[in-house]
Every structure is written in structure tokens, then in C-alpha cells.
Amino acid sequence: MTVLAAPENSPTFAIETRQLTKVYGAGNIEVVAMRNATMQVRCGEVVALLGPSGSGKSTFLTAVGLINPPTTGQVYIGGQLVHDGPAAYGNLRTFRRRHIGFIFQKSNLIPFLTAVENVQIALQLNGASHHAARRRSLELLDYLGVGDRADNLPAALSGGQQQRVAVARALANRPGVILADEPTAALDGQRGRQVMELFAQVAHEQQAGVIVVTHDHRSLDVFDTIYEMEDGAMQRQQHRNQ
């Protein structure tokens, strides 16, 4: 795959990666989890990322999420170079807080905070007042159908309910980038589809770039673009609906 001739600092892309490679381990046992993965996600675009287990999807997503630096290659967020190889530009943690919403494969919630507090904290970390943060959190939880469990601790919620609280937290700050690693694995088909549609809606309304790792082929029509990873390599797919 050739490198696209995008201009430096192009503001049109919410997310752009160039030739991302990740090599785990050192010495004799090296695992190349990702090789030359290049992707562009426009503002308002919803991308599905498919691929068999172990193909490097999570590795890619965490690199874009600025928590797992690539071995080589660049990551641009909102047109700004954030990672060039392992080197980082700017305060990654502040960047994540302001611009990136995450939903990850496994439990995402802080066990000693209630559902609503888990959402609230993301808002309050960005300077929202307690009151405003609580109101918006409750709204989001209501929208995701877990409003009645707002005051429960994560341990008292089902896997699907926990996942929806995590979705609410990821959306809370209206981030420019939303990254979700199999967010619907614990949800039934209908709920799963609802969450996917929510992502699409948020992407379109907020002009956010969204990447969703999924195995659920029934909801693929929700996405604008589909990528597939195979043994660490990234491949853009023709959209089914096109």
C-alpha cells in the first residue's frame, strides 16, 4: 500500500497514522504485532476495524490512543503530530483527556466509583463543575439505558451495563476522537447495534473521528469505511453498501 500524499498537518483528518509498526519484545523473541499500518479518518467518519484474533487491532488502537507508542511511524490527531516512533510531542495525558474517548475490550471502570461517578470523573478532570458533570453524566446514562443503575458500583452491574457506562464516559467530553475495542461484545444484538448507531450519530453531530474494532458483521452498514487487519497489516475494504 502506498503512502497517501496528504499535506503535513492536514486538518481534514481527525486521525491519521503513517506506516505504524509495533515490535513487541526484544532479542530472539520478537513479535511484530503491526506493520506499516496506515489509516486516515476524516472528521465525522465512522470506521470499522475487522480482523482475526491476534492480528494487531488492539495494538493499533492503543497506538492511536496514545497509550502504547509505536516502534516506528507517525500518529496525527486533528492534524497535529503526536507520535513519531516512540517519541511523543506534547503532554499525552492532557491530550487524551481533552480529545480522546476510549472504550476498551475489558473492564474499563474504576471499581470504587459508582456508575455515574465513573462518567462524572472524566468531565470533572476537564474542569466541569460537580453539578454540571453530574447532570450530563445522568443524561448520558439515561440515553444508554443504564440511568436506573447510576448509583451502583461497577461490581453490581452486568458486563453489558458496565460497557454502556464506559461508552457514556468515552462520550462525556465530546472528544474529537473515539476509539472502541469491541464495545458491543457483551451486548445483545439490538443493544450492540444501538451503541454502534450512537457512535455514528456522535461522529456526525460532533464531527468526531471514530474507530470501532468489531466482530459483529450484522452492524457493518452503520460504518462509513471498513478496514481489515491481517497479521499486523492494514487493508482498506470496499464498503458493502457502496
Partner: peptide
């Protein structure tokens, strides 16, 4: 939890 706080950007 601390790693998670860092992940969501807690200073």
C-alpha cells in the same frame, strides 16, 4: 484504577 485514571487523562 490508577492506570485507568491515567488513561482517561487524570493529572
Amino acid at each position: 484504577s490508577i492506570a485507568l485514571l491515567k488513561l482517561i487523562g487524570a493529572p
